[in-house]
Amino acid sequence: MYRFLVEQLFRKLEQCNTELKKYSHVNKKALDQFVNFSEQKEKLIKRQDELDRGYKSIMELMNVLELRKYEAIQLTFKQVSKNFSEVFQKLVPGGKATLVMKKGDAEGSQSQDEGEGGADSERGSGSQSSVPSVDQFTGVGIRVRKP
């Protein structure tokens, strides 16, 4: 009896395997597509990570260059302002004059004056970027005091 049941089970297993062979191509194709798409997804994720790192590096470089440009303009302005004050004192004895950097907002409706050392206060403002921008400067003016 036991042998008979085992034979029946084997026949049933062969019949099931024969039926499954009809659909073997479907599973194989789906598996191949899944593996292929998974590999493509991993490649794209790695590429996205590379691009994100590259973007971050470029933005950091742009911020460093913007800061250097801002500092160079500030240093040049301070030197010119100092020399201007010295020459003005020689030309107008007892008189005092300083150069001021004009600052305005994006629309240009307001402007502020910034003397020789006043630019450092801009760094602490709550602007969107932590890097100061030279775009805020709109011109140069003269502040004169009589003797």
Rank of each mutant, 00 (worst) to 15 (best):
M1K: 02
M1T: 10
Y2N: 14
R3C: 01
F4Q: 07
L5M: 07
L5Y: 12
Q8P: 00
L9P: 00
L9D: 10
L9K: 13
L9F: 10
R11H: 07
K12V: 00
E14Y: 01
C16A: 11
N17A: 12
T18V: 06
T18F: 03
E19A: 09
E19H: 11
L20Q: 08
Y23K: 09
Y23L: 08
S24D: 09
S24N: 13
N27V: 13
K29I: 06
A30V: 14
L31G: 03
L31S: 13
L31P: 00
D32S: 13
D32L: 06
Q33Y: 05
F34V: 11
N36R: 14
F37K: 12
F37S: 05
E39R: 10
Q40H: 08
Q40W: 05
K41F: 08
K41N: 07
K43G: 09
I45Q: 12
I45W: 01
R47I: 00
Q48L: 08
Q48Y: 05
Q48C: 05
D49N: 06
D49M: 11
D49G: 06
L51M: 14
D52N: 07
Y55H: 14
S57K: 14
S57Y: 03
I58A: 14
I58Y: 13
I58M: 08
M62S: 09
V64I: 15
L65Q: 14
L65W: 01
L67N: 09
R68E: 06
R68I: 05
K69T: 08
E71L: 13
A72V: 00
A72I: 03
I73K: 00
Q74H: 04
L75G: 00
L75F: 02
F77L: 02
Q79T: 04
V80I: 15
V80L: 02
K82E: 11
N83E: 09
N83K: 13
F84K: 02
F84S: 01
S85C: 02
E86R: 13
E86D: 12
V87C: 02
F88Q: 04
L91F: 01
V92A: 08
P93K: 15
A97S: 09
T98V: 13
T98R: 08
T98P: 00
T98H: 10
M101C: 11
K102L: 15
K102E: 06
K102D: 10
G104S: 14
A106W: 07
E107L: 15
G108V: 05
S109P: 01
S111E: 13
Q112W: 14
Q112M: 07
D113M: 15
E114L: 11
G115Q: 02
G117Y: 13
G117R: 05
G117Q: 08
D120F: 15
R123P: 00
R123A: 08
G124F: 10
S127D: 10
Q128F: 13
Q128D: 14
S129H: 05
P132Q: 01
P132V: 06
P132E: 05
S133P: 04
S133T: 14
S133K: 08
V134K: 00
Q136Y: 07
G139Q: 01
G139I: 03
G139Y: 05
G141F: 02
I142V: 12
I142T: 09
R143T: 09
R143C: 03
V144C: 03
R145H: 08
P147Y: 07
